[in-house]
Design a protein around this nucleic acid. Structure first.
Lengths: 232, 232
DNA sequence: CGTGAGCTTGACTAGGTTCAAACGGGGTGG
DNA sequence: CCACCCCGTTTGAACCTAGTCAAGCTCACG
């Protein structure tokens, strides 16, 4: 899998950054590198919650699937992000790779063993949980109280904050997720996502060179739209 | 405020139960009892995150208010529940008392000081955070992928699980929140909440002796409705 | 007994879903 | 190499769920 801490995109993540310089080997020595190809699952609902993951490369989606096929994506996961925070003995969520993905997997027991020599580690794990919670609260507001266009504007700014930019173009990025994924993240349908993209394009707030390559032309205005769009 | 650990409804909460018997005084001695009357706020968005709260009596609502008046309730808080898990230096949420409320307030520093003598305490705090996260994930699914009737059925079962029952009636309870609160929790309008209640009543799944006194007649069927309601 | 906040109900509207068709681009096999 | 096909996307039109606006009701409280 060729994961190397020194070149890893997650090197500066909340977890790994506790270990400076070569001491990172202490953490890496108990890590189990995993790689999953696009469409596969890093994590299944029914899996035991013994393990936690730190994404090294690629993008994945934390999702829940109902018996009748309705899907809800809880979060998109980027390099350095954490997966596996859970209560109970099995996850109630799955994690699907949107691109080919590599990650470090740890037995939670091994992480906890490092708490003694690196007390800061425990604080970080706790910090990660509260940060995830804060992001989740944002999403609750978006799902409950925003209309389709506001949701898409919010989504684009959210992705913009996290996504690696193309070399020259500061505001252009490639979406790793399909329209269906976006729809399932925002609680709307594919068609509505597509119509909202078209509308923002027509208004000149964004440009789409390919359907999955987005350029944010006017972030200020986009933020206004994310705040409020509609009559008056 | 007359809070007394021995009669407190939160005595068996995740936090307090770490201290058995009279040792609870160690926790209580650093607590600041607070009481807020119906409609008041325990917590404001702009407040510092130094403090955490454990509700002793009453019910409150964790909410976020947008500048244009849109409100989203993140959770209803019952005795024993925690408030104040947050990242950053100020809360991005408020907590409004739905009834008269009493709570224990601690400086987070004082709780952390107790970690040394009671290591279990730190685990509990962490456990609380992950539990809150799990509940929040449930809500995301509900907001994103359930229709109005499913939302109400889900809501009633959710309240049923947490709410104190009337002496004789095992399945009858009093709602501390208004229809508007329910609407803001589920991301719908007051009218839609009211119509869904009427529909469930007409179908014989619930009874309403007063608009705020609910009896769940058939929980099994209600659970089915919460899972799926609509065409086919 | 009157008042008002909260709840219910009705009629209409609108935003989003559903169903359907057409488009586009990338990959495969002839 | 090109044609074809498939998957994801876009667009259109009809439909429907939930929102909006408005009126009337209930009940606790002064």
């Amino acid at each position: 899998m060729g994961i190397n801490c020194h070149t890893c995109k997650a090197r500066t993540s909340q977890l790994c950054s506790v270990f400076e310089g070569d001491s990172i080997e202490k953490l890496f020595s108990v890590a189990h590198p995993v790689s999953v190809e696009k469409g596969g699952y890093l994590l299944h609902e029914e899996d035991s919650t013994k393990y936690v993951y730190n994404l090294s490369s690629g993008v994945s989606a934390v999702e829940r699937l109902a018996s009748d096929g309705r899907r809800q994506i809880m979060a998109f996961v980027y390099p350095g992000d954490f997966i596996g925070i859970s209560s109970g003995s099995s996850y109630s969520i799955s994690d699907r790779a949107l691109t080919d993905v590599t990650a470090c997997k740890w037995h939670m027991r091994d992480i906890e063993a490092l708490y003694e020599t690196h007390p800061e580690l425990e604080h970080r794990v706790h910090e990660i949980a509260t940060r995830v919670l804060a992001a989740t609260m944002d999403q609750i507001f978006v799902l409950g109280r925003k209309n389709a266009v506001e949701k898409i504007a919010y989504f684009l700014l959210y992705i913009d904050k996290r996504q690696v930019k193309y070399d020259g173009h500061t505001d252009e990025f490639t979406l790793p997720m399909t329209r269906a994924d976006i729809a399932d993240y925002l609680g709307i349908t594919v068609e509505t996502v597509s119509r909202a993209f078209s509308l923002l394009k027509k208004q000149g707030l964004i440009e789409l060179s390919q359907s999955w390559v987005v350029r944010l032309v006017d972030k200020e205005l986009l933020a206004d739209v994310a705040d409020h769009y509609g009559p008056d």
